[in-house]
């Protein structure tokens, strides 16, 4: 008996935007249903091979099952129903929140090191450490976010336009958003500056984080070409 009886249906459901967990459950239920039908037919006297084939026929074609399942309200994933929210607003919000969230504890830690340990923030090692941590996060955040949301778009069967949208948005945010910590060397307290500066895209270090999502986009494009079930068409 083939274990891949519903593989094509599973791929089609995923490409139609049904959430992976839901697909897994539906396929499990159909497998069980098929087995029950087969058992009943065998109990009625049919030969095993014929019973398997008849049970599959009774279940209906993949197209019929797919049509019924994708027509049901709510079964198609949130990402597929509201891509502008899931692949536009959500990554933007997450980018802004993480950009701010990581700086706050970092600034507090630096402030504590200065106030309690008497650390010299102007020391070359301290300056280099801050610079490198900043650069790594500047690069990792857009690359990781772009990859996660491109992956979601691909898995949910959203068109390549949505991957491009995510990468462009994240790239623009990486290029223009800044978070700066201002800590007086000898004083106490400090200042956290957050904002958007379109001119900063021409700065000395903003271009690399902004280009990282483009690399992700290229990888997404290659993966889509290798996966025939993911729609490549534009919208």
């Amino acid at each position: 008996m083939s274990l891949n009886r519903f593989d094509r249906l599973a791929r089609d459901l995923a490409a139609a935007g049904v959430a992976p967990r839901r697909v897994q459950r539906i396929i499990g239920e159909l497998e069980d249903h098929h087995q029950c039908l087969t058992d009943d037919l065998v109990a009625e006297g049919a030969m095993q091979e014929i019973a398997i084939s008849q049970a599959r026929e009774r279940l209906g074609s993949d197209e019929q099952l797919l049509g019924g399942l994708t027509a049901a309200p709510g079964l198609v994933s949130f990402t597929r129903r509201f891509p502008a929210v899931a692949l536009g607003a959500v990554p933007t919000l997450i980018f802004v929140m993480i950009s701010i969230a990581w700086v706050v504890p970092f600034a507090l830690a630096l402030g504590a090191a200065r106030d309690r340990l008497g650390m010299d923030l102007e020391h070359p090692v301290a300056r280099a450490s801050v610079w490198w941590i900043d650069r790594v996060i500047d690069l990792m955040l857009p690359a990781t976010l772009a990859w996660l949301f491109c992956d979601t778009a691909r898995r949910r069967g959203c068109s390549v336009v949505w991957s491009l949208t995510v990468c462009t948005l994240v790239g623009l945010l990486a290029a223009t958003m800044f978070t700066e910590i201002v800590l007086p060397i000898n004083g106490t307290g400090g200042l956290l500056l957050v904002g958007f500066d379109p001119r900063s895209v021409f700065g000395t270090h903003q271009w690399l984080p902004a280009l990282a999502p483009l690399g992700v986009m290229a990888a997404d494009f290659i993966l889509r070409q290798s996966d025939a079930t993911t729609p490549m068409e534009v919208l």
Partner: peptide, 16 residues
Amino acid sequence: MSEGVIYPTLHTLELD
């Protein structure tokens, strides 16, 4: 009830 109806209906009832 065909399987093309029963499972979508059950899943919709569950979501509701």
